[in-house]
Design a protein around this nucleic acid. Sequence first.
DNA 1: TCCCCAGATGAATCTTGTA
DNA 2: GTACAAGATTCATCTGGGG
Lengths: 377, 377
Amino acid sequence: MSAIRLVDDLAPSSASAEWIDSILKGDCVAAMERLPEKSVDVIFADPPYNLQLEGDLHRPDQSKVDAVDDAWDRFESFAAYDAFTRAWLLAARRVLKPSGTIWVIGSYHNIFRVGASLQDLGYWILNDVVWRKTNPMPNFRGRRFQNAHETMIWATRDQNAKGYTFNYDALKAANDDLQMRTDWLFPICTGGERLKDEAGAKVHPTQKPEALLARVLMASSRPGDVVLDPFFGSGTTGAVAKRLGRHFVGIEREQAYIDAATARIAAVEPLEAPELASMTGKRAEPRVAFVSLIESGMIAPGTLLSDARRRWTASVRADGTLAIGSEAGSIHRMGARVQGLDACNGWTFWHYEAGGKMQPIDDLRRQVRDGMVAAGA
Amino acid sequence: MSAIRLVDDLAPSSASAEWIDSILKGDCVAAMERLPEKSVDVIFADPPYNLQLEGDLHRPDQSKVDAVDDAWDRFESFAAYDAFTRAWLLAARRVLKPSGTIWVIGSYHNIFRVGASLQDLGYWILNDVVWRKTNPMPNFRGRRFQNAHETMIWATRDQNAKGYTFNYDALKAANDDLQMRTDWLFPICTGGERLKDEAGAKVHPTQKPEALLARVLMASSRPGDVVLDPFFGSGTTGAVAKRLGRHFVGIEREQAYIDAATARIAAVEPLEAPELASMTGKRAEPRVAFVSLIESGMIAPGTLLSDARRRWTASVRADGTLAIGSEAGSIHRMGARVQGLDACNGWTFWHYEAGGKMQPIDDLRRQVRDGMVAAGA
DNA sequence: TCCCCAGATGAATCTTGTA
DNA sequence: GTACAAGATTCATCTGGGG
């Protein structure tokens, strides 16, 4: 894991996986352009915040914006930052799988430009997430609020992207059975976690806490996924990815950071599979057709089903439909019909009587599923 | 206070103050262009968010969410929204005093475009401030994080603006002698504060809580200052300004909103004394997610937890769930499961071993919470 | 009068698989 | 690509009615 490669060592559009679990040395746009397209599940990017850029940004694109009165010099530097941002976001979009998602972290210095560029390039924002710092640096001059948070944007490749990973059920279970919100609280990276050089100076000025990356990756990736970080720095993304059983690809220009990250990642012990298993909800369960309850004899044709309060009753037919009077349809359609709604989950709406009590037919589905698991389906 | 005037009633660049403490009816750009330049101390703007909603959304109980589908929130494209944004920000900049500041509130739909436009026009961002909602609407489909905050940008007119108002000491005193941070916690506007029409329907779809405006104005204005709100809506800015002894100017296009705001503001009693600390103070009990103990390294994945009498044992997984055999769930669910109960407080039920003794994981929560309290969670 | 429970609701870019 | 159907999904708070 975590061999270092120069960007030039990669054959263009390489289909091999030699770049997996490694750090590519060089400019992130050039490096991403050499990776295969649609090859990465998640991108986590912590781009430079500094707007006083010293000419190492790339090719300004031709996007033209009306200049405003006396703001020309300032606009010049914003334009340079925007061009830089568009270039790397465009390259990132090419390597991202259609079902992949991207995270970008920033502060008020740059995050608005990043967010606007994301939208302009066709990315579709899913959430902005606030990292609230338990221990932010104080504001020394007392002329502003204490800058106590940073902002992350989470986005898909397109507005209509389907199938992106979001481990909703695990996040909810991990949060006292409440939905995970967009405001997260973590300490900044200090103490033993903070990488220091021999002189005791911090190796990287903006090392992110592993806890932050852990929540990002637990939320939006699965074991075995490939996580790309185009501004790898001290390698937090790689360290957490390895620990959580994800693959990583880092891109970094400075050898000192690469060296520090390489050593750091080498020392990481991956967690075992049982500890990595993530809770899934009903969405991940195999589909069960209602008719299979009839075919298996769990429900006999002619059985009467009711809602929990017995306001409506329907009769099961051998073809797996429900009949009420002369109307018939799926358990969902008929559940919606009787309630006058557009939609209804028939599995939880309809009940059968067992020992004088009303039980949802979803219980029977569970038995079928358990049987499927036992049969190794 | 709060007479209504049509924009055309104002003489161009009027030096008189007839527009003070009134609502101007009309388009905000046209209205601002008729106000004297450099005449306003603070601008608070709550522009349309450009939500881009498509279909209907239903709650799990099939009730329909009352979405913001008003015509004023619909734009053709990002370009159209940007043009709109630049136009009103430019007009706002003209009326703002050189020592004045502007606040703009938005969500991820629009705030990145607003922030970039602010920077492009020469405004200088002082802070971005997050309004964390105690009671946000849930995510009903379970495909994203619960959208639990909105973002405000606070900026001066220029990079080199001098003398803007920031009541550092008052804020610090109101915040238990800690610097006021950039993450603020307030409930959304409901209950008696929410304006309703005769039919009981909300007057305005996005009425902001007065507590939020109170902190904004207490932080960045002084008694007697003029506060401009170019998207006045239901008049929260005016009501709070009047109560806090500030002057207001509202601009609003729709007569229904003007009528509601006028009546509302007329009923406001200005405050004499600083009974305001209570409005800006802290709130709410911090909640700790079990997963944060794992993310922070206090509990390693794979750790075994037991009840106090060691009758049952469960394994901690990296996603923040507990596993017993093939079953997994939250600390509460699994505590209930093993005991055959409907509910269980996992924090007090589950224990970890430390020095041969069983300690409840609630002890770890206390440690995390102590760290959170400093952050004003 | 007070408690309890059912119902309503809030700036929302809110699904996925198969034909 | 599109159409259709299966089916998964909510938290804090306030209001109002009944006991």
